[in-house]
Design a protein around this nucleic acid. Structure first.
Lengths: 341, 341
DNA sequence: TTGTACGCGTTATCAG
DNA sequence: CTGATAACGCGTACAA
């Protein structure tokens, strides 16, 4: 056990409260004793017991973050931003994973509440229990980040997925591609937005919307699904049409895997097929060819969400449900180059 | 504020202690009241206040993890494993970043101690304050993970870097390369081990050890340093010698960047230059060419470190300083292929 | 300027 | 079987 106020007080022949005040630099303590107390505290490496402190004050200065997977680079960037914001505001951040599972998510939230967090930032799992979230929101402010397509009355911070997909598709079209394939995951609300942006871009350019051009990939079997489905579709497309093909992928993992599979299939990128995808990996520039991406400000989203959560907690009362939508950025690289090098 | 024992007791016309015991399934409470109490607790979503609980019991069931950067995929895998272990043992894990800075590391450790963590797993920053670590270890068990080359009396869990580098170098030699370059970071103890393994492999194969074949890259300016230094060296080597060249990189980031730079330089991999590196990214297989790697069991290391830490905490007393060394695994892919496809 | 008393939400001890 | 009481470490009115 570490040293306590009481022990300090004994050694100094002072009362506990005097020591407490001295350490908190209270005006009602003489400089003299302040110095003595602080000196001993320093020497003995006194560290106030945060549990006792927050039990007493009723505030823990801790907030929680729940994300699906920490190993996902996009989500780890959210965490990075969130922790930075917490640090700046002198809060502790404790994070938990839901592993895309409603039950684990519920357990994570319960664990956070038990730790008396003052607020929670969450990127809900695909099958999240909305009622549960809403119920918690009654006692403890919640902010949604990234996965904001849930019908819950909370502030939300996300990106304009539709716009990102629209612009990416337009980028492919500008690069001279008229047959645009999409690779996407199933289920997630956010993917719907991206598909919508894709379709709108097709329409805006008077291109036909062929449902068979959408490749769906199951969560957890990215590689297998991709190889079979994509190979199949590409095979057909490359033989059927002569139109130049572009591919849009809607997530980090899908994008990188698609690039890898194209390489393995010996498909020339960008000459035969042009590729762009939502991806936040810093390695995009190291790919061969370097990968054009739709970059989402993940770190900023994390930072902003925690920052706003703390604002909310500190001036509690006005619980605005505002939604902040950030813009993704198209970063053109070689995988969508127009003229061969 | 959430509901408390006292409030439950009032609604039930029972004493606080009875309610407490009922919820903890004590044998000295009648089935009858247990049912009633638990029913109401469930209905009102009672969640015990962990701060109060651990203040009372003296144990927080929380452990801390300190790593340099969460956005580093290797380190996030350590976190992943660590959290999994904590979950399995019903502990909370709170993690902090040191950002490779001794001062931030100290602050992180202090924050953890204030939160009354029962133990700490740390991957120390390059310039870590050993004395501080050792001092803390007096009050609170510490385990080093990955970065284990510190002179501190604690249990340690790491990988056999020397062996990994030796085998990777041997792998390059087996692939017919006789001029082996190394790309490495400065300062870090672990890089010394890797360089050592590299040199030993050269010796074992009667190859000359040329100091000028080592490319040093400064932390934080990976890309710039790499481009200038590597371009320079390769230029010279490719013109000076006719020996087939192999490159070994000692970290994730360096490896991926090197592959990217080779592609940009138009150097054929593996035909002109063969490449292998320490890397844990799941994307290695998606690179073009797919990247041969020295894989380190990062998740397992994280898991094992937390698991052992908890063992240590629970049967406190025998504080063994054992060091566990795991073996890295060479995963050959196309970047070191021998015969062109 | 310093000290006393109390309570935050729990659990543990002991008495009824 | 149930309840009163003390204590964990801290902050803060209030008394001295």
């Amino acid at each position: 056990m570490s040293i306590t106020l009481k022990q300090l007080a004994q050694k100094l022949n002072l009362s506990v409260s005097t020591v407490s005040k001295a350490l908190n630099d209270s005006h009602e303590i003489s400089e003299d004793t302040k110095v003595k107390v602080q000196a001993l505290a320093e020497e003995l490496q006194y560290r106030p017991n945060l549990m006792a402190k927050s039990l007493k004050t009723g505030r823990s200065n801790t907030i929680g973050l729940v994300i699906p997977y920490i190993t996902n680079p996009f989500q780890s960037q959210i965490l990075e931003g969130a922790q930075q914001a917490a640090l700046d505001r002198h809060y502790n951040l404790v994070f938990m994973q839901s592993r895309e599972d409603a039950k684990m998510e519920e357990e994570a939230l319960n664990a956070l509440l038990q730790q008396q967090v003052g607020g929670i930032v969450i990127s809900p799992s695909a099958n999240s229990n909305e009622r549960f979230l809403q119920a918690i929101h009654g006692k403890c402010p919640i902010i949604l980040v990234d996965r904001i397509d849930f019908d819950i009355k909370t502030p939300k911070i996300g990106v304009n997925s539709e716009k990102g997909a629209f612009e990416a598709t337009q980028h492919l079209i500008d690069a001279g591609r008229t047959e645009i394939l999409v690779v996407t995951g199933k289920n997630l609300g956010i993917n719907q937005k991206r598909l919508l942006g894709y379709k709108k871009a097709l329409m805006a350019n008077y291109l036909p919307n062929r449902p068979e051009n959408v490749v769906y990939v199951e969560y957890g079997q990215t590689a297998e699904d991709l190889i079979t489905n994509l190979t199949h579709l590409l095979d057909k497309r490359l033989k059927t049409y002569t139109e130049p093909i572009g591919i849009l992928c809607t997530t980090d993992t899908l994008t990188i895997h698609t690039l890898g599979i194209l390489a393995k299939l010996g498909v020339q990128v960008p000459d035969t097929v042009s590729l762009i995808g939502f991806a936040n990996t810093e390695y995009a520039d190291c790919m061969n060819p370097s990968l054009s991406t739709v970059f989402q400000p993940a770190v900023e989203m994390g930072y902003e969400s925690v920052s706003r959560l703390i604002d909310l907690m500190e001036r509690e009362g006005d619980m605005k449900e505002e939604t902040v939508i950030m813009d993704p950025i198209i970063i053109p690289r070689n995988s969508t180059r127009t003229s061969p090098a």
